[in-house]
Nucleic acid binder design. Structure first.
Length: 950
RNA sequence: GCCCAGAUGGCGGAAUUGGUAGACGCGAUGGACUCAAAAUCCAUUGAUGGCAACAUCAUGAGAGUUCGAUUCUCUCUCUGGGCACCA
């Protein structure tokens, strides 16, 4: 037989043409079990396809191909997310129409994608810039407008005064204009908004119902920022006014030391006449107003504020009068724009520290000793204790090393100096007495008492009571080392010595003292759950239980707030969907009648935004001036366009019926394809918070309109890792480290590139590109190619059959789990075994080709065809593994002595424990090691190992 | 600062519910073929010691649980991603 070498160029071209002609990858209309696999449709940039596109496309291609072979009616569609800035900027520079540039780019992308052999259904291709597509984007917007979800509001935009252009956030990073490098200003502009916040709660809650990767859910939840709390009113003394504050920690109310308002809060102006330092307050408000968002957050997070002198708020639970401040770290848009401050919040704590405001603790850290838990029914006895930090002038502190009994020596306590407080004694006296008794030191200077006491709860066995110990930490400096004699009975329990602070911190092993030293090293707010203190009748209650009780007691309202803001939907740009609204002086904002859709983008001479920041459309008076659809009077068109998140918010719906002229998709097609959502959607983590959330929002809206059958668009969402350049940084044109897939396809072939990208590393993690490593997968495919010369009509060996069936099982599972790298690896092992074998049965070789075919569709199709198959391998039935062949008759048992490997034995699968143990002891190496040792026990793990312990 | 993910040979990475650490691939070294080179094939390849059998050490650092830890718990360091005064 003459050896024909593997010529990828010939094979790939040949089969791509055949697939195209026979349309084997086109989805059937609506019949049978369906699978809808989705990838994020690409933005067709001028640079052409990126190796990263290929990684994610191949992954979903493999899954789709497997489903097709499993008998599913598969929809794996593709399209173009073609509105966007790069194309527009290119048009500004060159004057070439964006539509023409887009056409060129999509042609390139289409050709490149076809060259990679993806099994897309090309008959359903969509393009967001095609008027027949964006007609429906506009239509959905109008439905939202009619439901009051689209509205106009003043917001700030990034404005470059030099270029006179509004900038997207990503063009204004760091407050610098992306184009000219000059500073960016804020400019107020009326913009269209979408009320996504109305869906915030559902967007959060319905995440429970979908199968997204946990990290995706977490990121979405963080972005939505649901927070359950309460609104609590503070009366203002001598006025009818009240301040409504928002808090999630109503349990800290007794500790409120001030009420703080956002500088923009409306009450400030109302209270003007009573504020005695108005000038100072007004200055601060002005200063804040001038700051940009960036300045307001960047300034090292240093807290600043001004007290509203003459104003007092009344704590609704304690009746205490507290001061009222304004501060710019309180955001007017969030919550109620007002808070009560307490020391159990990091920001409030810093604020109090800066302005030296008196604070008091309302929550104690609570330590429950799990080794000595409370015993039910025993008396609870509360006791006050002091823990003292005693410092020498070199900074060393005194630590007690308790003498444990032998068996619990390891866990003997190491503590600060500790002691009880006797009746009639104040804390400092008690501490000084204890220090003298236990160490003999008499000359100490009291420095401070830490503002946080702690509470410990444990069962005190020697007293037979449940103990509550409230602990105060006092700091002393040692004046000199003068000591008095210490009673022997004190020293029998512990030694003491001075050690450095860092040693003390690592040695000390009781939670109270660990907390105190931590606070001493770095004072910070205690913000966790604990037990209430100095809180009237709530003292002693756990914080999470006290919360609702206190809200109730002060008549607070339980509310939920979200970080999510409404979506700014206007862009002052040309290359986007025109917003289909007409401004009429008489009738206001009037929607364009549906029969007039789409509102097409007119041709313009210049794509440059206008000097006043309006879109280039504003300068085309012929287009702008129109008639009001309602009163037929003179009116103007909206000149803002939509962001490019618009078209991508619903594209997966259009794919199911992309040619429909009457609806965005027919009910029937939607019910069939979206009946349980898109089955599997893979995409990048970078789209988790914007695209994914936006499209879920649109989908929910369409669901409410009864236009789609499900609450959620995507049943399952996974993510891919990025491909970085060889040096581990992001690939970018400016760094000149990009890899052009064109060259790789030319030199190695699409099959090699696909296999390499699946093999290079775990799919969900980022990996560095390595051109050197591509030869591995290439050699693998060449070996696959050569195996055909071994194909025989005879049966393969039993061993080879077993490995084949194990591989079928593993590859199938790996594809489902997106562990493509180990799937490829197991096929490489199989090929190695096939090479060792004299012959391979025809049927076995074919089965192998079938499981390889999703990864390398061209070479497998060619070999399949050469073996006489008339139909495509890609519509053949996915091979099943034989369960009997998966099980080994002989298994390996590892023999260890004291956990160290000493040998291995081979036994029959159903050998019993006795036999295996006996055999293990026969091992020479084991015998040698065991000489003169007394065996304590033998551990047998079924089917795995034996560990002999002496 | 907070949240998420990660750290394993020269490199990319494997490793079931805790059970032989380094599968598979790249690279490297030696050999075969060749006039020669490429390609291909064979062998070796974590470190240290030893002629060897083998022993010791090794999964970012330190502690803990366990007969046994890359895997579980705690503390810390570094890297990547996200959020950033959200009460």
């Amino acid at each position: 037989m003459k050896m024909k070498s593997y010529d990828h160029k010939k094979i790939e071209k040949k089969w791509q043409a055949v697939w195209d002609k026979k349309k084997i990858y086109n989805a059937k209309n609506t019949q049978g079990k369906k699978f809808y696999g989705l990838i994020e449709f690409p933005y067709p940039s001028g640079a052409g396809l990126h190796v990263g596109h290929i990684r994610s496309n191949t992954a979903m291609d493999i899954i789709s191909r497997k489903r097709r072979m499993e008998g599913c009616n598969v929809l794996y569609p593709i399209g173009w997310d073609a509105f966007g800035l790069p194309t527009e900027n290119y048009a500004i520079k060159t004057g070439i129409q964006p539509a023409i540039v887009t056409k060129q780019n999509t042609d390139t992308f289409r050709r490149q994608l076809k060259e990679l052999g993806f099994s897309f259904d090309w008959s359903r291709e969509v393009d967001t810039t095609d008027p027949t597509y964006y007609k429906w984007t506009q239509w959905i917007f109008l439905q939202m407008f009619k439901k009051g979800l689209a509205y106009k509001a003043k917001t700030e935009i990034n404005w470059c005064p030099k270029d006179k252009i509004g900038l997207a956030n990503e063009e204004a990073e760091g407050g610098v204009c992306d184009r000219c490098g000059g500073p960016v200003e804020k400019k107020e502009k009326e913009q269209w908004m979408l009320a996504i916040t109305k869906y915030a709660d559902r967007l959060d809650k319905d995440l429970d119902e979908v199968n997204y990767l946990e990290k995706i859910k977490i990121q979405q939840r963080n972005w939505i920022g649901k927070s359950e709390g309460a609104e609590i009113d503070f009366k203002i003394k001598n006025t009818p006014e009240k301040i409504t504050t928002f808090t999630t920690r109503a349990d800290t109310l007794y500790g409120a030391f001030a009420v703080i308002l956002a500088p923009e809060h409306e009450l400030v102006e109302k209270l003007k006449s009573q504020i005695t330092n108005w000038k100072e307050v007004a200055d601060y408000i002005n200063k804040t107003a001038k700051k940009t968002d960036i300045e307001r957050t960047v300034e090292d997070k240093d807290k600043s504020g001004v007290e509203l002198k003459g104003i007092k708020a009344i704590n609704p639970i304690s009746g205490e009068e507290i001061p009222v401040w304004i501060a710019d770290f309180i955001l007017v848009q969030y919550g109620t724009g007002a808070v009560f401050a307490d020391m159990h919040d990091e920001r409030d704590f810093q604020f109090a520290k800066k302005y030296k405001l008196p604070v008091h603790q309302s929550i104690m850290p609570l330590f429950i000793d799990k080794a000595h838990p409370w015993v039910d029914g025993k008396e609870v006895v509360e006791r006050t204790a002091i823990h003292a930090v005693i410092r020498k002038d070199n900074g060393d502190i005194l630590v007690l090393y308790w003498k444990g009994t032998e068996e619990w020596k390891k866990n003997a306590p190491i503590t600060l100096l500790i002691g009880g407080v006797e009746k009639g004694e104040n804390l400092i006296e008690a501490a000084k007495r204890e220090i003298k008794e236990e160490t003999g030191f008499v000359n100490l200077k009291f420095i401070e008492q830490l503002p946080i006491n702690t509470q410990s709860r444990f069962f005190a066995a020697h007293k037979n009571v449940n103990r509550i110990a409230n602990v105060t930490c006092l700091i002393f400096d040692l004046i000199n080392e003068e000591r008095v004699e210490v009673d022997e009975k004190e020293t029998q329990f512990h030694d003491w010595k001075f050690v450095s602070m860092s040693k003390a911190t690592s040695d000390i092993n009781i939670p109270d003292d660990i907390y105190f030293l931590g606070y001493l090293n770095k004072p910070s707010a205690f913000t966790e759950e604990g037990v209430l203190v100095d809180s009237g009748k709530y003292t002693g209650i756990l914080s999470n239980e006290a919360r609702s009780k206190i809200i109730k007691a002060v008549g607070g309202k339980v509310v939920t707030k979200f970080k999510l803001r409404d979506w700014v939907f206007s862009r002052q740009r040309y290359w986007g969907e025109p917003i289909p609204i007409i401004h009429c002086d008489k009738c206001g904002y009037v929607p364009v009648p549906e029969k007039d859709l789409p509102i097409k983008l007119p041709k313009v001479k210049s794509y440059q935004p206008t000097d006043n920041g309006e879109s280039p459309l504003a300068s085309i008076s012929k287009w702008v001036n129109t008639k009001c659809p309602k009163c037929k009077g003179k009116a103007k068109r909206e000149t803002d366009t939509m962001p490019n998140w618009a078209g991508s918010s619903w594209y997966y719906l259009r794919y199911v019926d992309s040619k429909n002229k009457k609806e965005f998709a027919s009910k029937k097609a939607l019910k069939y394809w979206i009946g349980n959502g898109v089955d599997w959607y893979n995409g990048g983590m970078e789209h988790t918070t914007l695209h994914l959330l936006y499209s879920r929002f649109w989908h929910k809206f369409l669901y409410d309109m009864k236009l789609v059958p499900t609450k959620e668009p995507y049943m399952k969402r996974t993510s891919h890792g990025m491909i970085l350049a060889e040096d581990g940084v992001k690939m970018s044109k400016s760094l000149g480290n990009t890899v052009d897939p064109k060259d790789v396809v030319k030199n190695f072939g699409a099959d090699t590139l696909r296999t390499y990208e699946m093999f290079m590393g775990p799919f969900d993690q980022s990996v560095n590109w390595s051109t050197d490593s591509i030869v591995g997968p290439r050699r693998f495919l060449e070996r696959v190619w050569k195996l055909k010369y071994k194909v025989s009509k005879k049966k393969s060996s039993k061993e080879l059959e077993k490995i084949l069936h194990k591989t079928i099982k593993k590859v199938g599972e790996d594809i489902e789990e997106m562990r493509f790298n180990t799937g490829v690896s197991s096929m490489m092992i199989l090929v190695g075994e096939m090479e060792k074998s004299e012959i391979i049965a025809m049927g076995d070789y074919k089965k192998f080709l079938q499981i390889l075919s999703p990864f390398a569709p061209h070479i497998t199709e060619e070999l399949w065809n050469e073996l006489g198959e008339k139909k495509s391998i890609h519509i053949s039935a996915w091979p099943k593994f034989d369960k009997k062949l998966i099980i080994d008759d002989e298994i390996k048992i590892v023999v260890q002595v004291n956990g160290k490997l000493k040998g291995e034995i081979f036994v029959n699968v159903d050998a019993n424990e006795e036999y295996i143990k006996a055999k293990a002891f026969e091992n020479e190496n084991v015998k040698k090691t065991l000489i003169g040792q007394e065996i304590k026990k033998v551990i047998y793990v079924k089917g795995r190992l034996i560990n002999i312990v002496f």
